[in-house]
């Protein structure tokens, strides 16, 4: 079972929790397990059933886009973080 670290901006969707356990062999499976127990979190970070493009996902502080995305394997010692991006621009 992995641990999911919740940033301050998302804690109101998980009753204030800072860390939550999640079951699954991959990041995607672990997040699905977490969302099943915390539907408010799912509503915050997904669009049309998929993770929003403005949500960064990390395993042990490494962005999973540079690994295997939601297929990145996770185990008991791994920490997953979901964190809304900060992006924009003048145009």
């Amino acid at each position: 079972m992995s641990s999911v670290r919740i940033p301050p901006v998302l804690r109101d969707a998980v009753d204030g929790s800072r860390d939550l356990p999640a079951s699954g062999a991959t990041v995607g499976e672990a997040l699905e397990d977490l969302f099943a127990r915390h539907p408010a979190l799912r509503a915050r970070v997904t669009e049309d059933g998929s993770l929003s493009p403005f949500i960064n996902v990390y395993v042990n502080d490494r962005d999973v886009r540079f690994r295997d995305g939601l297929d990145t394997p996770v185990g008991d010692t791994d920490t997953i973080i979901i964190l809304p991006a900060m992006a924009g621009g003048s145009r």
Binding site: P8, N56, I81, A85, M86, G88, G89, S90
Partner: peptide
């Protein structure tokens, strides 16, 4: 983004700084 028109806080910096502040 390294762009004159766009920004995206580098994901590695973002996660480090957010949890440093927290």
């Amino acid at each position: 983004e390294a762009s004159p028109l766009r920004y995206n806080v580098h994901p590695e910096d973002l996660v480090r700084i957010v949890f440093e502040i927290d």
